[in-house]
Amino acid sequence: MDVMHASPTFTIFAAHWTPQMNLLPHDRMMKASIGIHTGREDIILWRRSGEGIEASGVNCLFAGDIAELPVDGIRSATNPLPR
């Protein structure tokens, strides 16, 4: 990751994904904005349930797209591309 700005309340970084990279469900406990410069990111949104977590939505982001994640948001993500 390349950190472009960091302060106690706001950080901007560029993440570089490998082909078909996957991130397991995780929460950030903070608001987040995700912007795609090139490539693609598929996001599965999760919510807490009595059984743990369950899928509650999906968002496919392409170059130029931006997604807002709430403070309590849980997501998993994948780069479905072979590059």
Rank of each mutant, 00 (worst) to 15 (best):
D65A: 06
F62W: 09
L45N: 05
M30L: 10
R75I: 06
M21G: 09
P8N: 02
G50Y: 07
H26N: 08
R28I: 02
N59E: 11
S76A: 13
I74N: 03
E51P: 06
R83I: 00
R47N: 08
R75D: 05
L24K: 14
M30Q: 15
P80K: 01
A6M: 10
I74G: 05
S76L: 07
L81D: 01
E54Q: 12
C60V: 04
G39A: 07
V71Y: 15
S76K: 04
A15R: 12
A6K: 10
R28F: 13
A67L: 09
D72Y: 05
M29T: 04
P70H: 04
T11H: 02
G39D: 09
I53N: 10
Q20R: 06
R40A: 13
F13N: 12
P82G: 05
D2Q: 11
I34R: 11
A63G: 07
M4I: 11
D65V: 01
H37T: 06
R83A: 01
M30E: 13
I43R: 06
P80T: 00
A55I: 00
G35I: 02
L24H: 14
C60L: 06
A55E: 10
P8W: 01
A77W: 03
G73S: 10
M4C: 13
G52M: 07
C60R: 08
R47A: 14
F10E: 03
A55G: 09
L69H: 04
I66G: 01
I43D: 09
M29V: 03
A15M: 11
E41L: 15
P19R: 02
I74Y: 03
E51C: 11
M1V: 08
I44T: 14
A32W: 06
G73K: 06
W17S: 09
F62Y: 14
M30C: 13
P8T: 02
Q20S: 05
M30Y: 11
G57S: 08
P25K: 06
F13A: 15
T78Y: 14
R83P: 00
A14T: 09
T18G: 12
E54H: 09
H16M: 14
S7K: 01
S49K: 03
T9R: 02
E68M: 04
N59Y: 13
P70W: 05
I12T: 08
R47W: 10
E68F: 11
I12N: 03
P82Y: 00
G39Y: 13
D42A: 11
H26M: 09
L24S: 14
I34N: 05
A67N: 02
F13G: 11
A32I: 04
H26K: 12
M29H: 15
H37Y: 15
Q20D: 07
M4H: 14
C60I: 00
G64H: 08
I53G: 12
D2F: 15
R47V: 03
S33T: 07
R28Q: 13
A77K: 02
I44E: 15
D65P: 03
P25N: 12
P70Q: 11
G52T: 02
W17Y: 13
R75Y: 12
P82E: 03
S56Y: 08
W17G: 05
A77Y: 02
I44C: 13
P70R: 05
D27F: 07
P80G: 01
W46P: 04
I66R: 03
T11C: 04
L61T: 00
H26W: 15
T18V: 05
G39S: 10
V71P: 04
G64S: 04
